[in-house]
């Protein structure tokens, strides 16, 4: 019997592909965002509003990961931007190889690449897809206990958008508790309260995003 020391990362291949994605995007001067959230948290609506607000000043491309159907992709297509749909055929997350493949189809003559991950607060957190920033959306109806319940996801967030803030008056949801628990699991994450439906807080999010992009191009 022979013992072989391996000491290899299980997701080494994914990490290598994510690195390739970063190189491609850097060469093209593209800033990529990876949107992650539960199903129904409002990813597509926030993305729609973001594109509407920024598309006159920024060229935007969009990659959508969905288990099945192209519903999200067709919503975004209506806004007149370049869209590529990845059907993960059952997989609960996007991985770097899927995104790398999609990069061959999507227009990279853009300033911002939006990647909408599969709706799921667990699996996408484990797979680096080569984005510059992770945007995690939590929505008020999901409850204020989610940060502690999904620490791996909130730990990888660069910014957390708390959506559906207009529903606070109907539900028992403690915003301060969410902020405190987010600070504990991820002291560097930024936090913005929004209502994609009513428009509350969206300007702050757009300004935040513009600053991120401006700062990244200085690097």
């Amino acid at each position: 019997m022979k013992r072989v020391v391996v000491e290899k990362k299980i997701l080494e291949r994914n990490d290598e592909s994510a690195k390739k994605i970063r190189e491609i995007l850097k060469n093209k001067g593209v800033f990529a965002l990876n949107f992650m959230a539960s199903p129904g948290a409002g990813k597509t609506t926030i993305i729609e509003k973001t594109i509407e607000a920024l598309k006159d000043n920024y060229r935007i491309s969009y990659i959508d990961g969905d288990l099945d159907t192209d519903r999200d992709a067709s919503r975004i297509k209506k806004l007149g931007i370049d869209v590529v749909q990845i059907n993960t055929s059952g997989a609960c997350h996007l991985d770097a190889d899927m995104v790398l493949k999609a990069l061959k189809q999507v227009s990279l003559d853009c300033d911002i690449l939006i990647i909408e991950n599969v709706g799921n607060l667990v699996c996408p957190a484990t797979f680096d897809v080569g984005a510059n920033k992770n945007v995690v959306i939590l929505s008020v109806p999901e409850g204020d206990d989610k940060v502690k319940k999904y620490p791996v996801m909130f730990n990888v967030a660069d910014v957390v958008l708390l959506n559906k803030i207009d529903l606070l008056k109907f539900l028992d949801f403690d915003v301060e508790k969410v902020k405190k628990e987010l600070k504990e699991i991820n002291p560097d994450a930024d936090f913005i309260e929004v209502s994609a439906k009513e428009g509350y807080g969206l300007d702050r999010w757009f300004e935040y995003l513009k600053n991120l992009i401006a700062n990244s191009s200085l690097l």
């Binding site: 019997m1 022979k2 013992r3 072989v4 020391v5 391996v6 000491e7 290899k8 990362k9 299980i10 997701l11 484990t126």
Partner: peptide, 11 residues
């Protein structure tokens, strides 16, 4: 945070 194959035994 790691996920790693440490070693294997085989013949």
């Amino acid at each position: 945070k790691e996920m790693e194959i440490v070693d294997v035994e085989g013949e």
